[in-house]
């Protein structure tokens, strides 16, 4: 796979402050460690129910979704079954309340929350933390 640095023209990444998260209880925190928060797009660029692909530093890709209920999720864009970067183009929905995206190729369904393939316990997509700052959606990528 091609390795890519921060795409030309994209704003520089910034490092999020790690303090001031006192309300979060241990045990349910995302894995610790500093992240860089890669700007993806303005919130207003997202169509509720649909996804977009975001190019990350190092060449990885995230599939970023805004659901009609306001939740924003990011999972890896690579479909592990089809071995193609397509998940951002899948249809979202829910299965028994669990927010999902279905691969546009062979329709395997993944949880947007956990990345798990819902019909295949052995497969899960990596997930990304997401935050919205000043109207910009950012994706948290662990610092090396």
């Amino acid at each position: 796979m091609t390795t890519l640095v921060t795409p030309p023209g994209a704003p520089p990444v910034d490092v999020a402050p790690s303090a001031g998260r006192s309300a979060v209880r241990p045990g349910i925190l995302p894995p610790p460690g500093a992240r860089q928060w890669v700007p993806a797009c303005p919130v207003t660029a997202l169509v509720p129910g649909r996804g977009v692909a975001v190019l990350l530093p190092g060449g990885a890709q995230a599939a970023l979704f805004l659901l009609p209920n306001g939740m924003i999720y990011a999972v890896d864009n690579l479909d592990p079954y089809a071995r193609a970067a397509v998940l951002s183009r899948g249809l979202t929905g829910d299965r028994g309340g669990e927010p999902t995206v279905a691969s546009p190729l062979l329709k395997q369904v993944f949880s947007l929350r956990t990345g798990a393939a819902l019909d295949d316990p052995a497969v899960a997509l990596p997930t990304y933390a997401v935050r919205v700052q000043a109207g910009t959606v950012r994706i948290g990528v662990p610092l090396p």
Binding site: G70, A129, V137
Partner: peptide
């Protein structure tokens, strides 16, 4: 309001 949850998800409310 953009709300960030501790599980890494975010939502607009």
């Amino acid at each position: 309001l953009a709300v960030e949850l501790s599980d890494g998800t975010a939502l607009l409310t």
